[in-house]
Structures are given as C-alpha cells and as structure tokens.
Design a binder for these strands. Structure first.
Lengths: 111, 111
DNA sequence: GGTATATTCAACCATCCGGTTGAGCGATCA
DNA sequence: TGATCGCTCAACCGGATGGTTGAATATACC
C-alpha cells in the first residue's frame, strides 16, 4: 500500500532502473533489448521493469511475444514538483508562499 | 558506494522522511521536536535523520546537548536536475503543486 | 508438429530497512 | 553530586529487495 510518491522515489533509487529510464528516453524497447547492456540476468531486468511499471514510470505493451516498454514521464512530474518545492522555497514561511500560490493560481496561470 | 542520487532518492522514498523534510521547511528543529508528531520511537526518528543527513538533504549541528536539524535544499536540486533531463515537464506545474500542498502539508506529520 | 525465442514465475539466498527496546553518554541543572 | 534531559548505539526481529537458477508459458518460425 505504498504511496505513489513512495513508489516513484523508491524506483528511482536504483541505478539500474535509472539507466533503464535513460535508455527508454531514446526509444521504446523490448525487454530483451533493455536487458542487453546489463551484466545481470534477464529475469532481474524483467523485475526491474515491473517495479518501474508499478510506479507508473513506464508502460508495457505486449505485441506478439515481445513486450514493449515505453517511458511515461508524467509519473516523474509529480515527484519533480515535490522536489522543486523545496529547492525553490528554502526555509521561508509557508503562509507567504500560500498567498503567492493563491495569487498565481487566481491570476489564471495555465502552465 | 551508493551513488549520491541513490541516497537522495532512497531517502525520499520514505513518507516519514518526506514529512520530516516538510517540517524542516518551516524552521530548524531539534531531534526531539522532530520526533514529537510521529508515532514511532525517538531512536527510529534519529536514524531517519541520519539517513537524511547522509544524503545531504539536511545538516545537523550539535549545540549543547541539543542537535539542530536544518534543511539543505541543494541536495534536492541535483536530483531535480536529473529528473528535468527527462524533459517534457515544465519548470513548475502549479496544479500539481497545489495537490502537493494538500497532501503533504495537510496530511503531513501525523502518519 | 516441433523447435527456437521472449518473457515471466518460483524458489532460494544474502543483504538492507524500518521498527523495537534497553543501555550508554555527554550536557544541563537543582 | 546526582538526577534528568537529549540523543545515539547495539542487538534483535520481520519483511522487503536484488540477485541467482531452472522450470513454465506463450508466441513465432520451419
């Protein structure tokens, strides 16, 4: 019952999984091709991919006997926003920041 | 051995530690005060703080018999940059940030 | 049909993680 | 000096994690 942020950050905490995401940045890949550069077993890579999929960081689509893996950057967005909040704000008072948010959102900020 | 990114993401993967960081956003705190809202032992919180410090996310300064904990947002910046590399996400999604305020600050420290 | 390919499952192992409790230790204060 | 406070350490426990190997499943090819 891990929170979504728990899953995303935990998935990102492993260097193999980060490397996989980086590979998928270029193109969708089959499981076997994802596994190719790594010195671990195919089964291990398959489970890494399951972790990434559970966190929503990738999606997997079965086509024939090949399972294609696709990066899903939306899952990163939530975590990225969480982190940027700290980077931006630093130790400053939240009330002021909430007022800032109200004016920003109220002004119809559309991304 | 663990890469710095490994440590940062692993530290962020725990909801208690994220709640601690959120608390420290408002002000520096002593270990005992950090532990106060949580239903776990002081020793457990102390170790959470050590994990955060090892990841560089907080710094700790001993003053008398009290150890003060201070947020260090720079460590987050590195991880945030890593995520930015996946592109497609704007610098700050205000809607997502509003959800962050609701969930992390609202539900915050009482888990 | 039979064989090769793509992927997962299951069992197992070592290690890590988050929690506990109880002892220990330096700093403070009456 | 002795009691208390603030915090950490050490040992322990149960469950998760990351790796392995070997069997299983399903699809594709000849």
């Amino acid at each position: 019952m891990a929170d979504r942020l728990d899953q995303v950050f935990a998935a990102l905490a492993d260097p193999t999984r980060r490397a996989i995401l980086t590979m998928l940045l270029e193109d969708d890949m089959a499981v076997t091709d994802v596994a190719q550069p790594f010195a671990i077993s195919l089964a291990a890579v398959s489970r890494h991919l399951q972790v990434l999929a559970a966190a929503g960081l990738i999606s997997q689509e079965q086509r024939g006997r090949v399972k294609w893996c696709k990066l899903e950057p939306d899952a990163l967005r939530e975590a990225s926003v969480w982190m940027q909040a700290f980077g931006m704000m630093g130790p400053l008072d939240l009330d002021a920041f909430e007022r800032f948010l109200d004016t920003e959102l109220g002004a119809g900020a559309d991304d």
